[in-house]
Amino acid sequence: MTERRTMIWVMRAAFLVFVLGAWELSSGRLASEFFISRPTLIADQFWTWLIRGVIFYHGAITLLEAVAGFFLGGALGMIMGVWLGRAQTTAEVLDPFIMMFYSLPKVALAPLFVLWFGIGIEMKIYLTATIVFFLVFLNTYTGVRAVSRELIAILKLMGANERHVLFKVVLPSAITWVFAGLRLSVPYALIGAIVGELIASNRGLGYLLADSAGQFDTTGVFAALIAIMIMAFFLNSTIKVVEIKAMPWREQSSRREMSI
């Protein structure tokens, strides 16, 4: 089994070398270097930015926007989800409006947010928060509604009051769904921040990307994309670890033997 793992890694490395090699060789021969740049140039640019702190400066801004928007939207989504999940009538009244707003591509709000909040990081935070809000809200709402009525009856027979039901069952069971929503939101949070920066900004990885493109610097564009990719990977890994820590019972269930 370990032998197989080693082989997989070797083949992955070989694949990467092949793709980068083909890119490097075809650049200037099969396609213009102006459009596709070269891996060596991109690595060089990335390294320069890295040691000059450019990546960290812009990356920190983007990270701040994504994380702040993520927490703001996540918290509001969670609160609204639990509240509407419990308040049946209000939920029914609001349903068509929520669904209408939900179907709107949230990035289309960016110009409006620029008008309202300017081109600073607030605008990106609010844009990100709006996107994250809906994902977390809908997940939480579904989760709260999905709590079994049988289970609630069983608990009430045990003498549970509304507060017991809320804190012992509804909220903990909603956490599973909140995490599903949050997990889903991570890439979208980054999208919100980057799109916000692309539209109007003077800082952040999205700005770095747009600025390079504006100067017809393909190498810079690729280097910025790599920085964004690394950040997305880092964020996804973080939430995975947090999820396993927060819900140990989930990880263990996946270890059970499959029976098909």
Binding site: I154, L157, K168
Partner: peptide, 14 residues
Amino acid sequence: SVGYMTQSDHLLPW
């Protein structure tokens, strides 16, 4: 005075 048990065990997974 009663306790109820159903087909589904309704244990809390967490």
